[in-house]
Amino acid sequence: MTSTPAEELAETLVELAAAMAEECDLDGFLRLLVNRSVHVLDVPAAGVFIVDHGVIASHESLLPVLGYDESPLLDCCRDGRAVAVPQFTAGSRWQAFTDGARRAGFASVHVLPLRRHAETVGALALFRDTEGTADARIAQAVADIAALCILQARALRRSEELAGQLQHALDSRVVIEQAKGVLAERLGLEMSAAFTALRNYARSHNARVAELASSIVDGKFDTNLLRS
């Protein structure tokens, strides 16, 4: 049974959300985004530009076009508003971009912001080989769910990085405490004095306290070198 446009749109939104949730692979997600955009929005080609990441396109011929320093994609990212160019003509404000798109066989472009509230993370460009624009409501719906997925993935990645940093700090603290105990026993020091000796040796030898502590706990370091 053939799906209706509404069903295809719903399937696309669900597929995009699931892809980012399951893999958190931004490049793979963006390739899925441009390919599904071509299908559900009935355009011959699509490209996406992500701030601080780069470009992905459904056609290789579009990659150099998306990379121009002046383009409706960059204006869309900067202003957070859609940009429609229903006809590529001479005298365009983005002449290099429009000339490159025309050489690639396209006649118009509709650029939608990948935006969530006040934050714009990129832009989705829908290229047509005829004059005109894409269905703005459907196109923006696809762009909105894509932006939400990207921002959630970034938030998750930052959370995981923070958790990793906290765990590393905790692990380092445990090893340092163990090393202090070793030094206190072997050198006859108070725990505070043991830490002072550990820290001073690390500083004077341009070493990390946690790494030195680990060597002491593992028995790889001669603790007599810390005797004052």
Rank of each mutant, 00 (worst) to 15 (best):
D27P: 05
S159I: 03
V83G: 00
D79M: 11
E131T: 13
A193W: 07
S92L: 00
T89S: 09
A134P: 01
I150S: 00
S172L: 04
V65M: 11
V182M: 09
R36C: 03
R115A: 11
L183T: 02
A155Y: 10
T4I: 11
L9Q: 02
G54R: 06
G28L: 05
L62W: 07
A143K: 09
R115T: 14
H110F: 12
L32S: 06
R36Y: 03
R81T: 15
T2G: 07
G91T: 10
A202F: 01
I50F: 02
R154E: 10
L62F: 09
S214T: 08
E185D: 12
A184H: 00
S214A: 15
A17S: 15
G122C: 12
K220F: 08
E8Q: 13
L26E: 10
V55H: 12
A213D: 06
L9M: 11
L162Q: 14
L162A: 15
I50A: 03
R103S: 12
E22H: 07
G181Q: 06
A155M: 13
R103V: 05
A18F: 08
T120V: 15
T12Y: 09
A57Y: 02
Q87T: 09
T4N: 05
V14P: 00
V83K: 03
S37K: 02
Q87S: 15
I145D: 06
P5K: 04
F29H: 07
E161S: 13
M20I: 10
S192P: 00
A143V: 14
G100Q: 00
D27N: 07
K220M: 09
G67D: 11
E23G: 01
R81E: 15
L162M: 14
A169R: 14
L63Q: 08
F195Q: 13
V209H: 09
V182R: 13
R102P: 00
K180A: 15
L183W: 06
G181D: 10
A143L: 08
M20A: 08
H205P: 01
F221R: 01
R81W: 09
L114F: 11
D75W: 07
D171K: 09
D69Y: 03
L124Y: 07
N200E: 15
C77Y: 02
R31S: 06
A46C: 03
G54Y: 06
A193G: 11
L73F: 04
D135V: 03
L74P: 00
V83E: 06
V174K: 07
P5M: 07
A136W: 03
A6H: 07
D99W: 01
S228W: 13
V174Q: 14
K180E: 14
F127N: 05
A125Y: 05
S108R: 01
R103D: 12
L74Q: 06
N35G: 15
G54D: 05
L9G: 02
T4M: 07
V182N: 01
A82Y: 03
R128K: 12
L16Y: 02
Q178R: 15
A207I: 08
S172K: 02
D129V: 03
A179C: 08
R93Q: 12
S3K: 11
F195C: 06
S3T: 09
H110P: 00
A193C: 08
S214M: 11
E160W: 12
P72C: 01
V85I: 15
A10L: 14
G100P: 01
T120D: 09
V51I: 11
A6N: 06
E185W: 12
N200K: 14
A96F: 03
I138S: 14
A107I: 05
